[in-house]
């Protein structure tokens, strides 16, 4: 609310000073510093619920529900293995399992276990974009289960951990601290 008030005060000041070109009785500031146009409409709860699907590392956005490694194994075989291989390593698409300790080698293997910094990202991505041929078709319980199986295959959780909105964000991924800020320009001038 605060910013809206500041904007309207700013607009009043500009209008009263008559800054800019007067046209059809209104001042338009092309620099867009202060103007509100009164365009658009309030979003409905329905619109928000349908699209607000992102899941943050804090767990914000995770839905109710739960999944297990065992259920995930069945689901992965049925819905994922055709592209990612029976154990998540064979492809033909992205390898999901293994690769620990390879990131600094000449042949790095970037997988969920070796590379991904946040477990919550698995839920977000699998729900929004997988399976490739039918994205957003898995139920929350199914997504939790596939995530559980993938984390277990990578040796990150034991086979009995039930994943839900509380347990998933509590998981620390092996490469959690493997990322650095962009240091460019980084190449010395010739």
């Amino acid at each position: 609310m605060c910013s809206r008030n500041i904007l309207s005060v700013g607009l009043t000041v500009i209008l009263s000073l008559g800054v800019g070109n007067l046209w059809a009785g209104e001042t338009i500031d092309r620099q867009e510093r202060t103007h509100r146009y009164g365009i658009g409409q309030a979003a409905t709860d329905q619109e928000l619920q349908a699209w607000n699907i992102d899941v943050a590392p804090t767990g914000e956005g995770l839905p109710p529900g739960q999944g297990t490694v065992q259920e995930g194994a069945t689901l992965f075989a049925a819905r994922c293995a055709a592209c990612h291989g029976a154990t998540g390593q064979e492809g033909p698409m992205d390898r999901l399992v293994g690769g620990a300790g390879t990131l600094g080698s000449q042949q790095p293997i970037k997988t969920i276990g070796s590379y991904w910094p946040y477990a919550t990202t698995l839920y977000d991505y699998i729900h929004r974009a997988m399976p490739f041929s039918a994205p957003q078709s898995l139920s929350p319980d199914e997504v939790y289960s596939v995530v559980a199986w993938l984390l277990h295959q990578n040796g990150i959780i034991n086979k009995d951990l039930v994943l839900n909105a509380q347990s998933l964000p509590a998981i620390t991924m092996p490469n959690r601290h493997g990322f650095v800020q962009d240091p460019r320009p980084d190449v010395p001038k010739p």
Partner: peptide
């Protein structure tokens, strides 16, 4: 904070 989607992490 950044939302840490798959595109900006892995």
């Amino acid at each position: 904070a950044p939302f840490m989607t798959r595109e900006e992490t892995s």
